[in-house]
Amino acid sequence: MNNQRPKILVVDDLVDWRTTLGGLLVDVGYQVAVAESSAAALDLLKTEHFDLVLLDVRLDETDEESTEGLTLAGEIKDRWPSTKIIIITGYGTSEILNKAMETDAEGRRLAANYIEKTKTGELVQVVRDALKKE
């Protein structure tokens, strides 16, 4: 029974966001793990299967230009294609989001969806939808 609860990984370098988003998702019944960096996320992904990864675009608050999250998203898509990805962003830079949501030649795209940090109220619904979609 335990194993039927979808497993979600939350990746954000900011502890407040990790704990808020993670806490919300546990509270609605998901199994959740958190990671603060790409490296930590990959370590976890190697040892267990996640149905969905929720990841911050920037992943490095000290670098305004960081798009490390997108790099990680690409790597996850390559290595674990069945794992869904939702991008979280604190600053809806359309360019980055466009990239994440763009469909490739085979009609696939990197992220299932994205969500802005200011709209955590929608988080659970966005996650549910992503997990439902095939």
């Binding site: 502890v15 704990t19 808020t20 806490g23 919300l24 546990v26 959740v32 958190v34």
Partner: peptide, 21 residues
């Protein structure tokens, strides 16, 4: 209270505990 639950859950989650509410 949902806010208290999520705060406490998040805190514990970040320490690597398995949590439920």
């Amino acid at each position: 209270l949902p806010d208290v639950r999520t705060t406490v859950l998040g805190l514990l989650l970040d320490e690597g505990y398995k949590v439920r509410s």
